[in-house]
Amino acid sequence: MGELVRVEVEGGVHKVTLNRPDVMNALNRDLRRELTAALTVGHSARVIVLTGAGRGFCSGQDLSDATGLDDAGFERTLNEEYVPMICAITEAPVPVIAAVNGVAAGAGANLALACDLVIAAESAVFIQAFTRIGLIPDAGGTSFLPRRVGLQRAMGAALLAEPVSARQAESWGMIWEAAPDDRFAEVVATRAAKLAAGPTGAYAALKQALRGAFDQPLEAQLAVEARLQGQCGASEDFREGVAAFLEKRAPRFTGA
């Protein structure tokens, strides 16, 4: 990867760090492209952790980078650069953790909400800052936010563009967990290690089932469950899980 994104791989954990700390990891064109590539490479790992360098997670679009943001360029930039970046998260066959170490604003907030599990430091805040500059939430925000918190809270967060603390986000169901700052890194590492040791095939099927659940009626969702459960039931991980249960030991999943 390039200088704007750091990648560290250890024990099946593919850690991706946004690395523009001087501008709170604001997203310019080069960072978006590097990030998409780093996330895509992480699809072959067992879990991806996305975080930011310095005191912020991501402050959103770099407004000093006018590339592709002229009158005619917004739609093209979103389609060509933001959509692949978000899809690299939502379509990953492995769990993706957003480790929100500080401010997550604008597209940065929605980059976090695209992830499967969001763990934030208590001092972190989420800001749907778009209306402050006359825009609407993008980077998937109009989909992720109301599905996580309901329409009224999504409207309030987007219309008022006020900071939502990590604790408030946790109570709303916007994120999974707000961790004390002094234990944040430990909590993220523990969650990542647990997922990296888990049944990755079942995780991939689970992600597919849950992410599609809002888009179809119950009967169709039941059919999806049956098909995916059939795949999981034929896996080595299922056989290992049952054997470990009967033998009263920890399972040794391989992803097969």
Results as ranks from 00 to 15, higher is better:
Gly42Arg: 03
Arg46His: 13
Arg46Ile: 15
Val47Met: 07
Ile48Ser: 02
Val49Asn: 12
Val49Phe: 04
Leu50His: 00
Leu50Pro: 09
Thr51Trp: 05
Gly52Met: 00
Ala53Gly: 13
Ala53Arg: 11
Arg55Asn: 04
Gly56Met: 12
Gly56Ser: 15
Phe57Gln: 13
Phe57Gly: 15
Cys58Asn: 15
Cys58Asp: 14
Ser59His: 08
Ser59Ala: 12
Gly60Asn: 06
Gly60Asp: 09
Gly60Lys: 13
Gln61Val: 08
Asp62Gln: 06
Asp62Glu: 01
Leu63Arg: 15
Ser64Asp: 14
Asp65Arg: 11
Ala66Trp: 07
Ala66Cys: 12
Ala66Glu: 14
Ala66Asn: 07
Thr67Tyr: 12
Gly68His: 10
Leu69Glu: 07
Asp71Trp: 06
Asp71Asn: 05
Gly73Pro: 13
Phe74Tyr: 13
Arg76Trp: 01
Arg76Asn: 05
Leu78Ala: 02
Leu78Tyr: 11
Leu78Cys: 13
Leu78Met: 11
Glu81Leu: 05
Tyr82Asp: 11
Tyr82Arg: 01
Met85Leu: 15
Ala88Gln: 01
Ala92Thr: 05
Ala92Tyr: 03
Pro93Tyr: 09
Pro93Phe: 06
Pro95Met: 01
Pro95Gln: 04
Val96Arg: 04
Val96Asp: 05
Ile97Lys: 04
Ile97Thr: 11
Ala98Asp: 11
Val100Asp: 09
Gly102Trp: 00
Gly102Gln: 13
Val103Leu: 14
Ala104Trp: 13
Ala104Glu: 11
Ala104Ile: 03
Ala105Pro: 05
Gly106Val: 03
Leu111Arg: 09
Leu111Cys: 14
Ala112Arg: 06
Leu113Ala: 01
Ala114Thr: 10
Cys115Val: 04
Asp116Thr: 08
Ile119Phe: 01
Ala121Cys: 05
Glu122Gly: 15
Ser123Cys: 12
Ala124Ser: 15
Ala124Pro: 06
Val125Phe: 12
Val125Lys: 08
Phe126Asp: 05
Ile127Ala: 03
Ile127Glu: 10
Gln128Glu: 11
Thr131Val: 13
Arg132His: 10
Arg132Ile: 03
Arg132Phe: 01
Gly134Leu: 04
Leu135Ile: 03
Leu135Gly: 08
Leu135Arg: 12
Ile136Arg: 15
Ile136Val: 05
Asp138Leu: 05
Asp138His: 14
Gly140Ala: 10
Gly141His: 09
Thr142Leu: 14
Ser143Val: 07
Phe144Val: 01
Leu145Met: 11
Pro146Cys: 00
Pro146Asn: 10
Arg148His: 00
Val149Phe: 10
Gln152Asp: 11
Gln152Val: 08
Arg153His: 14
Arg153Ile: 00
Arg153Trp: 11
Ala154Phe: 08
Ala154Val: 07
Met155Cys: 12
Gly156Leu: 02
Gly156Met: 08
Gly156Glu: 10
Pro163Thr: 03
Pro163Arg: 05
Val164Ile: 15
Val164Gln: 04
Gln168Gly: 04
Ala169Lys: 00
Glu170Trp: 13
Glu170Phe: 07
Ser171Pro: 15
Ser171Val: 01
